[in-house]
Each structure stands twice: as C-alpha cells, then as structure tokens.
C-alpha cells in the first residue's frame, strides 16, 4: 500500500505549551485510520497542522509524495487533502445546496454546471437532499456535521480528515454514520478519523494511533492498541484526561 499522508516528527507549540511533540504517523492510500486520545491530547491541533491552518515549528508533512508544510489550506485542499471542523463552520446564510456547490467548484477547477451536478450527488450520498434548499444555519447539529462532510467530499479529495463527526449522535445515527463512512471509503477515499467515541473507531479503523499530551503513545490494530497499558493509563489512570464517552 502506498503512503498518502506522512507526518515526520511534527512539533507544534503555542507559547510555552507543546501541543504536538514530535508526532510521526503514516496513512496509506485507501486506509481508514483512527486517532484517539483524551481531551486536550492534540487531536484537533494535529488536523489543523496537517491541513495547513497551523504551521508546525518542526518536522515535515508530506502528502501524495510532496511536502506541504507552509502551503495555504486552500492549496493543500487542491492537492486532495480535505478536512471537516470539529466545531461546525457552515456558510450559515447560504443554502445547504450552495454550501456544497462551493466545495464542488474545487477552487475554480470545475464549472458551475459540473459543480451543481457533483453537489447533488454528494447531498444524496449523505442524505441531505431533502434539506438542500434550507439555509445551512437552520440545520440541526447532526445535519450540520453531515454538511461538513458533504462539503469536504464535494472537493473530490483523496483523503479526508474527519474531526469528531459523530459527537452528539444517537446510537442509531452512529451506526448510520459508520455505514456511510464505509461507503465513502469504498469509493477510494482515504479516511483519517478523530473520534471521542472509541466504539466507532474500533468498528471502522484498520489502524489506530493514540495521542496523549501531544505525543503518540501507541499504534497498531485497534483491538490490540486499546488494551495496551499505556493507553488504558492515558484514558483512565490520570486525572486530567476524561474517559472516553463510549
């Protein structure tokens, strides 16, 4: 399996706080990789750094064979790396359809007509077609999470970083989302998922990384990783990490 995304000793600091401490990880094309970790372990910082919203102090990030450190987020997206936001960021005043059409324009590489067609397909896929005419601000939170995903998928990425898209979903909705993600991977899209919900990660991911205090403390097959002493310690042993809301 060829490597699609690779982080090499990536360090990100905010003032005196080291949010990412020499993190190295690798995502192969076509994989579903999970990243878990207690609150404040650096998961969202990791995504923000990989997608170009934050610039690392040290280390290298390579995507599809080239270094992407220092590139604008829009440029990184154009290379095929998309992301969603943990705190949803809809274009609230625009319609759901418009939100996705803007993604489907791919920064100008598609015509409006093509973008409209792609948007319609993606909206169908995530099940938002019935809401397409609504202002995005009117959606419920689970719907807005799906909109986040739809917008990212509309850019036709090779890889999507999914940041807690299942938070706040009911169990039945989680199962639905798991099915959806499998379907998306089936179309050849590589997925990296950050999720508080360990159950979802276990069900989806082929490989998993565990972040704690900005460092990777474990890596491997989910069923193996979850039982490693360091991971158990990180989740349940210390007072500052909140246990997983499984």
């Amino acid at each position: 399996m060829s490597t699609l995304l690779e982080l090499e000793r990536v360090t990100k600091r905010f003032g005196g706080l080291t949010a990412l401490d020499g993190v190295s990880l690798r995502v192969g094309a076509g994989e579903i990789v999970g990243i878990i970790g207690p609150n404040g372990s650096g998961k969202t910082t990791l995504f923000a750094t990989a997608s170009g919203f934050l610039r690392p102090e040290d280390g290298d990030i390579r995507f599809d064979g080239r270094s992407i450190v220092g590139l604008r987020p829009s440029r990184i997206n154009a290379l095929g790396l998309a992301r969603t936001f943990q705190i949803v960021q809809p274009f609230a005043g625009l319609s759901v359809r418009e939100n996705v059409v803007i993604g489907a324009l791919r920064g100008g590489r598609e015509t409006l007509a093509t973008a409209r067609r792609i948007a319609a397909e993606v909206l169908d896929l995530v099940g938002l077609s019935p809401r397409a005419g609504q202002p995005a601000g009117n959606l419920t939170l689970p719907e807005q999470k799906r909109l986040e995903m739809a917008r990212a998928l509309a850019t036709q990425p090779k890889l999507v970083l999914l940041d807690e898209i299942m938070a706040g979903l009911r169990p039945a909705e989680v199962d639905q989302a798991i099915g959806l993600l499998r379907q998306i991977r089936g179309r050849g899209v590589t997925l990296v998922i950050v999720e508080h919900l360990v159950r979802a990660v276990l069900a989806l991911a082929e490989r998993m990384y565990v972040l704690h205090h900005g460092s990777l403390i474990a890596e491997g097959r989910p069923d193996e990783v979850i039982h490693q002493p360091a991971v158990v310690e990180a989740y349940f042993g210390t007072t500052d990490g909140s246990p997983a809301r499984a």
Partner: peptide, 17 residues
C-alpha cells in the same frame, strides 16, 4: 459568499481567501 460567511471554512474547501 463563502469568504464573507466563513473565511476559514472557505479555505478548507480550496478557496484562496
């Protein structure tokens, strides 16, 4: 419209703010 509504989200989907 995208940049006006949310510049960060616009960047994330390939629009150079």
């Amino acid at each position: 419209a995208a940049v006006r509504e949310n510049a960060q989200a616009a960047e994330a989907i390939g629009i150079n703010e």
